[in-house]
Simulated scan of single mutants.
Amino acid sequence: MVDVTPFEEYCEFGGDRVYLLLAIARAKENEGTAGDAAPTLRRVVEEAADLARTAAELEHAADRFDERFRLYLTANARDALKATFELRRSMDDWLEGRIHGDEGVRPKFRRVDREFLSTLQSDACRDGTNFVFDLDDATAADRDALVDDLRGHTGVALARETPNGFHVVTDPFDYTDFTTGVDYELKTDGLIFVSYLDG
């Protein structure tokens, strides 16, 4: 059973705000799986009370595959209403293309549910601006040093251990003048590692 307790407090639901939980089978962790063929499963989470159930659903769904999955949460909420309008605009384009003989759009009509999830996950539909500082090959001391440096610039919302290091999630700030001795990759609309799904 996946422990999602830290995320129940982290997530801010309300109005049209939702989050996405993603189960991703990364090619580099699954020998014989090509990057473009690695399965990804996504579910919408509408409120904090649904996090554990949705994580369990993804864990169950991942069991049917041979690959090992990682579970992630979007660092920023998504705007479901905006995603609906974005999808409607896309569908109008598909219809126009179909009317004019574009056979390439035909499969999109058979997978509207997946198209909605892709739209919801897009940068255009985020409803938040939290940053994810991704520390690979880092120690707990590196994480602590980064958190200390960040606290002089912004609020730190969450720090999470990952298989290769840590994710540190912060409130938005002007990072152009931020300096630290810790190596990191900054993701302005990233995913937060939750757990492995080991079935």
Rank of each mutant, 00 (worst) to 15 (best):
A61W: 08
V169Q: 10
K187L: 09
L81Q: 13
D93R: 15
L58M: 01
E185H: 10
L73T: 07
R64C: 01
F173P: 03
R126H: 07
K82T: 04
T180M: 07
A140V: 02
E12R: 14
T179C: 01
L87V: 12
F65T: 06
L146P: 02
I192K: 13
E9A: 15
N76A: 11
H153Q: 14
T119G: 07
L120T: 14
R110N: 11
D123A: 12
A77Y: 10
A62Y: 13
D177C: 04
H60D: 09
A34I: 03
L120S: 14
E8H: 02
A157K: 15
H100W: 08
L150I: 00
R17A: 09
E12G: 06
D144R: 15
S195Q: 01
K108A: 14
P39R: 11
R26W: 07
F178K: 08
D189S: 15
G190V: 08
L158S: 06
L186M: 11
A83W: 01
F109T: 10
M91W: 03
R43S: 11
F7T: 04
H100C: 03
F85Y: 11
E115Y: 12
D102K: 05
A145R: 13
D136N: 05
L197S: 00
L21C: 04
R89N: 12
T54L: 07
L21G: 01
L73A: 01
T54C: 08
D198Q: 05
R106G: 05
L73V: 04
G32S: 03
S118K: 09
G104D: 06
G181D: 15
Y175Q: 12
Y19D: 02
Y196P: 00
A124E: 13
A56H: 05
L158K: 09
R111W: 09
S90Q: 10
S122H: 11
T180F: 02
D92R: 15
L81R: 15
P39L: 12
D149R: 02
D148C: 08
G155L: 03
V105C: 09
T179H: 06
S90C: 02
L186E: 13
G104N: 12
L120G: 10
D36I: 06
E31D: 08
G104R: 10
T5V: 09
V156E: 03
G181W: 08
R98G: 09
N30F: 00
A49W: 01
S118N: 14
Y196S: 03
T33G: 00
L120D: 08
A83G: 05
V44G: 12
A77H: 03
L117G: 08
V168Q: 05
D16R: 12
L73N: 02
D36V: 05
A27S: 10
G15D: 10
L21Q: 02
G181C: 04
P107Q: 10
V105S: 12
D171F: 12
F85R: 13
V147C: 07
A159L: 00
Q121K: 13
E103H: 10
D93E: 12
